[in-house]
């Protein structure tokens, strides 16, 4: 199993029961899709969800996650 820290800022925290940090465990070889699945996020469908950021870079959901990763769940910013 790998341990992942996830950050949810602003309205996106709604996807994590309004908390802005989550620490979870996923099986070895888990991807961004597994992370999304853990929080019932369906990329391109779930309101609020935009994309994932790791180590200062936007990553596609198929990216394999590593033990100790910190992942930011970024929202869609549509307003102005």
């Amino acid at each position: 199993m790998i341990k992942i820290k996830i950050l949810f800022n602003g309205p996106v925290r709604q996807l994590n029961g309004w908390k802005n940090v989550a620490n979870i465990e996923l099986p070895d070889g888990a991807t961004g899709y597994d992370l999304c699945d853990y929080f019932n996020i369906v990329p391109k469908k779930t309101r609020l969800y935009g994309f994932l950021i790791r180590d200062g870079k936007k990553i596609p959901e198929e990216t394999v996650l590593n033990d100790g990763d910190t992942i930011k769940v970024n929202g869609k910013t549509s307003g102005g």
């Binding site: 309205p11 935009g50 910013t77």
Partner: peptide, 28 residues
């Protein structure tokens, strides 16, 4: 762009870097 307390910003420089669709993916 902004919503709630969050926001994003990016320069879109045609021919040089990613565009808005590279950042946000297909239009929801």
């Amino acid at each position: 762009g902004v919503v709630g307390s969050g926001g994003m910003c990016m320069n879109v420089l045609p021919g040089e870097g990613p565009c808005l669709e590279c950042l946000l993916g297909p239009l929801p």
